[in-house]
């Protein structure tokens, strides 16, 4: 049994919140810079120039890349040989969010009730926490500030087995086409297939967060589907911010799970070009 103090988690999460919002991951930067070189459309180049200049300013001045500092989404892999002392894990995560968003001058976007008065909670809590129990004696915390604009363009559909690979493709392409310029392209497309209604949605989120960007599914059939979907999406011509161009998506990642004989749920989660995330292992 390894003992980890909850205070250590609070501090690590607070730092994660700030760093993830200020510094765009290197693989995303590289993908954006490559896209800039590929585009010959003047408006597309201008948009990508602004995007590149923006993350440089954010990095230099420690400013959030985007004013939408997101829903605080956490993927936590908790080693089963870890015991947390001096507090409850979820409280520590939320305390870290509170501290990071306040000290880091990050925007607080969460409201208490989703329908009626929509009053801001004031500190960006509660976080959305996905906890996995894994072997080992460490905690791996991945934090993603997930913007509302791209999350709103995500979709799920309960397809049937008879829809096959063509059905999956149609739904993914249609979701991206309908989203158009709204989710701040160039986007990252996460596709979750199988499991149940909620499992497919979670797989799609995990797919969006797969790193490095463009790393293929280990099953080569799905790896091929990732390539085909990326090519077809980029043929749509939506382009950076939807103003036209060759780069609508930077990557398509697919995650799958076994499924019931009667089912084939497909979920599509979309991330904007400000694809912020950071991982820490304690």
């Amino acid at each position: 049994m390894r003992v980890i103090d909850a205070k250590e988690i609070v501090e690590a999460v607070a730092k994660l919140c700030m760093d993830a919002n200020y510094y765009l991951p290197e693989d995303v930067k590289k993908a954006l810079e490559e896209a800039r070189e590929r585009e010959d459309n003047q408006i597309a180049r201008q948009v990508l120039d602004e995007i590149i200049e923006n993350y440089k300013i954010a990095e230099r001045e420690k400013l959030p890349i985007c004013q939408d500092c997101g829903t605080s989404v956490f993927l936590i892999e908790l080693g089963q040989d870890v015991r947390i002392e001096n507090g409850y894990l979820y409280d520590a995560i939320n305390e870290g969010v509170r501290k990071g968003y306040s000290e880091g001058y990050l925007r607080k976007s969460m409201v208490y009730d989703p329908v009626i008065d929509r009053k801001n909670t004031g500190d960006n809590t509660p976080a959305v926490i996905h906890l996995d129990l894994v072997p080992g004696d460490k905690i791996k915390i991945t934090f993603c500030p997930k913007g509302g604009g791209s999350e709103n363009m995500s979709a799920i559909k309960m397809l049937s087995a008879a829809d096959g690979i063509e059905g999956v493709k149609r739904f993914v392409i249609e979701t991206v086409r309908k989203a158009g310029g709204n989710p701040c392209p160039p986007i990252i497309v996460g596709v979750g297939i199988g499991g149940t209604f909620e499992k497919a949605a979670f797989l799609a989120k995990k797919a969006v967060l797969r790193r490095p960007l463009g790393k293929h599914n280990e099953d080569e059939r799905f790896a091929r589907l990732e390539d085909e979907l990326l090519e077809e999406i980029n043929k749509l011509g939506i382009g950076p911010m939807g103003f036209g161009g060759k780069t609508t998506a930077l990557a398509v990642h697919i995650e799958t799970f076994p499924v019931h004989i009667a089912m084939m749920p497909v979920a599509v989660n979309i991330n904007c070009h400000a694809a912020r995330q950071k991982t820490v292992i304690i």
Binding site: E53, N54, I65, D68, G147, G180, G181, N182, P240, M241
Partner: peptide
């Protein structure tokens, strides 16, 4: 940023308005 509905487009024509777009996610800039 992003697309507008038909009702907005009609209003822009009728009242001579403009919808400007800024690049999304370049908030620091």
């Amino acid at each position: 940023k992003g697309m507008r509905g038909k009702e907005v487009k009609e209003a822009l024509k009728k009242y001579k308005g403009v919808y400007f777009v800024a690049t999304g996610g370049v908030a620091a800039l």
